[in-house]
Design a protein around this nucleic acid. Structure first.
Lengths: 111, 111
DNA sequence: GCAACACTGAGCTGCATGGCTCAGTATCAG
DNA sequence: CTGATACTGAGCCATGCAGCTCAGTGTTGC
């Protein structure tokens, strides 16, 4: 449970940066190497690498090195935790409506 | 466009903290006052208020003060920007598959 | 073999964030 | 009127993050 919260923390924070979101969008079109990705962003390579590491650390991309090239690939599964959380919230609202309905139809039950 | 990115930045960062997510979940069950919310968290009130301000600044909750009590209410609309972004990503993947299909069926078209 | 390439590591800076305290203001209850 | 309540503001501290540079290391191509 605390684990789950930590995952959400990481994923949301990772997504809270437009560079990293852009990388995700780019990788949605297929794998790419680090320098291939970096070319699109106006920052030094080591700075860019930090973003890749952040994405990797939070499970949003997988990377592998072959020779001197590190290839990055999107791990779409990780994005589903965001969807799950959103669904969870929706269920809360709906739960609320249910209880409101219940209250309207049978006030004695509540309290 | 840059505006849109800034909104996403703010919303994702705001959601990247378990205290703030918990507040959102709690507010999903209905409005509440600041101290009512704060009671559930092991931190000083001014610290907690910062979270509320962050959520408000990013449009995730609306607050209003009447008398000495500030009441907080969830603004669900703001959460839809997250869903939109996720949909956008999905469309990218699907677009990719489309183009892959197209490539398979008609390689000449692609370069 | 050597140059170019693709990272990688170390370490610095400035700024933002999350927590704290302490002191203040405004409102409400009695 | 007074005390309690519900914030609010100022300001401090530690940590973390995003960017930088500079100096490597390991691979590849000629």
């Amino acid at each position: 449970m605390a684990q789950y919260q930590a995952v959400l923390d990481g994923v949301f924070v990772a997504l809270g940066d437009s560079t990293r979101r852009a990388v995700i969008t780019r990788l949605g079109r297929g794998p790419a190497s680090v320098s291939e990705l970096a070319r699109e962003f106006p920052m030094a390579l080591p700075s860019f690498m930090k973003h890749i590491r952040t994405l990797e650390a939070n499970g949003l991309v997988r990377t592998s090195k072959s020779g001197r090239v590190r290839t990055c690939e999107l791990d779409r599964a990780r994005l589903t935790v965001v969807e799950s959380w959103l669904d969870e919230q929706r269920r809360t609202w709906e739960g609320r409506t249910d209880r409101l309905e219940q209250f309207v139809t049978d006030p004695e039950e509540n309290l």
